[in-house]
C-alpha cells in the first residue's frame, strides 16, 4: 500500500533544512511512499529534486494566520490524501502542536512534542534541563540591556556567544561586536538575549526519535569533523559514546519527547565534561547520516504513526563518515512558473 507523506524544510541550501534528507530516507526505505514537499518559497531546491520529492506546494508562513495555514494544508490534503506530515522546521512546530488534533480529524498524522516538553528544551530552560540528564551547561546570563551585556563580557571574557531567545547565535570577539549582535538579535527575535561563556572543545550531536512515553525509537551520535561558516555540519563521523547515549535515555525518560530531536553537545577535553548546548525539536539536516548507518528514523516515525511494527534498535558502527557536497540540477522555467502562479509544482 502506498502512503503519502508531506515533508517541510526542503530548503537544501547552505543553511540546510532536514526535508530532503527525510524524503531521501523514506524513498530508500521498504515503505511505498509518495513524498509531498511543503515549501515556503518557490526557490527551495527540494521542489526541483523530483527523484526525492514527488510534488511540492507553497504554504503561507507559519508565523501568519493559523486559519490560512490549516486551510492551505487541507486544500493540499483534498488533492493528495496525506497520511503523515513530518514537520522539519522549528518555526512550524508551535502551529502543528496547536492543530494536531484538527489534522487527526482529517486523517493526517503527525508526531510533535507536548507543549510542556517543547517549553522545557527552550534556550532559557536548558540550564535546568542539563544537570537532570547528566550534562553541564555553559555559564549564561539573560540580558536585556547593554550594561548587562558588558557585565557578562567582563565576567566571561571573549570570545563570547550572543544568542537570540529562540534562534540564531553569534560568536563575538569584542564589546562593539557583542553590542551590534545584541541589537540585531533583539530586533529580530526580542528579549532576553543570552550571553554565554564559550566552551572550547569538540562538537558532538545526537539525532533521536521518542515515542512520547519515554521510549527510545532509535538514535545515532556523531562528531562534527567540518562545519561551515554558518556552523552547519558538512562532514561528520559516527561514534559510539555511552555518556551521550545515557544523556539521550535520560532526556527521553524525563521529557517524554514525542518526535524527532537533536542534542547539540560540546566535549571540553581538559575536564572531560560534556556540555549541553541546545536541544533542537526536530530531525537535524544531517538525519540521512543515521539512515546511511542503518537507523532510518523517518521510516520509523512513519511506521509508528501508522501503528506498524518498527525497529527501535540503535545498533550501528562507529567510523562511518558523512560527506556533504554541492551539486547542480537543471530544470525548466515552467516549473518555477507553476509554483509562482499556482503555488504547486
Amino acid at each position: 500500500m502506498a502512503y503519502t507523506v508531506a515533508i517541510s524544510g526542503i530548503n537544501a541550501i547552505d543553511n540546510p533544512g532536514p526535508g530532503t534528507g527525510i524524503a531521501k530516507s523514506l524513498k530508500e526505505s521498504l515503505l511505498d511512499v509518495r513524498t509531498i514537499g511543503l515549501a515556503y518559497d518557490a526557490m527551495e531546491p527540494g521542489i526541483y529534486m523530483d527523484w526525492v520529492i514527488d510534488k511540492s506546494y507553497i504554504l503561507p508562513y507559519p508565523s501568519g494566520d493559523v486559519e490560512s495555514y490549516i486551510t492551505r494544508l487541507l486544500d493540499i490534503h483534498a488533492i493528495e490524501h496525506i497520511d503523515v506530515i513530518i514537520s522539519a522546521l522549528d518555526s512550524e512546530l508551535p502551529v502543528f502542536m496547536k492543530i494536531e488534533s484538527e489534522l487527526a480529524r482529517h486523517g493526517i498524522r503527525i508526531m510533535v512534542p507536548s507543549r510542556q516538553s517543547f517549553r522545557d528544551r527552550s534556550k532559557d530552560k536548558l540550564s535546568e534541563l542539563a544537570p537532570k540528564i547528566g550534562l553541564k551547561y555553559p555559564s549564561t546570563m539573560a540580558v536585556t540591556r547593554v550594561s548587562e551585556l558588558d557585565k557578562a563580557a567582563d565576567e566571561y571574557g571573549f570570545p563570547l556567544m550572543i544568542k537570540g531567545p529562540f534562534y540564531e547565535a553569534f560568536k563575538v570577539n569584542s564589546k562593539e561586536e557583542a553590542e551590534k549582535q545584541f541589537h540585531t538579535l533583539a530586533a529580530k527575535w526580542g528579549f532576553p538575549i543570552l550571553a554565554q561563556k564559550v566552551i572550547n572543545g569538540e562538537e558532538y550531536n545526537l539525532v533521536g526519535l521518542g515515542d512520547g512515553e519515554g521510549n527510545d525509537l532509535g538514535h545515532l551520535a556523531i562528531k562534527k569533523m567540518v562545519i561551515t561558516k554558518l556552523g552547519k555540519v558538512w562532514t561528520n563521523v559516527s561514534i559510539r559514546n555511552e555518556r551521550i547515549f545515557e544523556a539521550c535515555r535520560k532526556f527521553l525518560e524525563l521529557s517524554k519527547w514525542r518526535g524527532g530531536f537533536e542534542l547539540e553537545l560540546m566535549l571540553e577535553p581538559e575536564e572531560n565534561e560534556l556540555y549541553l548546548i541546545e536541544v533542537n525539536p526536530r530531525f537535524p539536516a544531517w538525519v540521512y547520516m543515521a539512515t546511511g548507518c542503518g537507523i532510518n528514523l523517518p521510516e520509523r516515525m512513519v511506521r509508528h504513526l501508522l501503528n506498524q511494527t518498527c525497529n527501535t534498535h540503535s545498533s550501528y558502527d562507529a567510523g562511518r563518515i558523512m560527506v556533504r557536497y554541492t551539486d547542480e540540477l537543471i530544470s525548466n522555467i515552467k516549473a518555477f512558473e507553476r509554483l509562482t502562479t499556482y503555488g504547486e509544482s
Partner: peptide, 8 residues
C-alpha cells in the same frame, strides 16, 4: 588509529 568513542 580511530577512537570510536570520541571520533578522533
Amino acid at each position: 588509529i580511530f577512537d570510536p568513542v570520541t571520533g578522533n
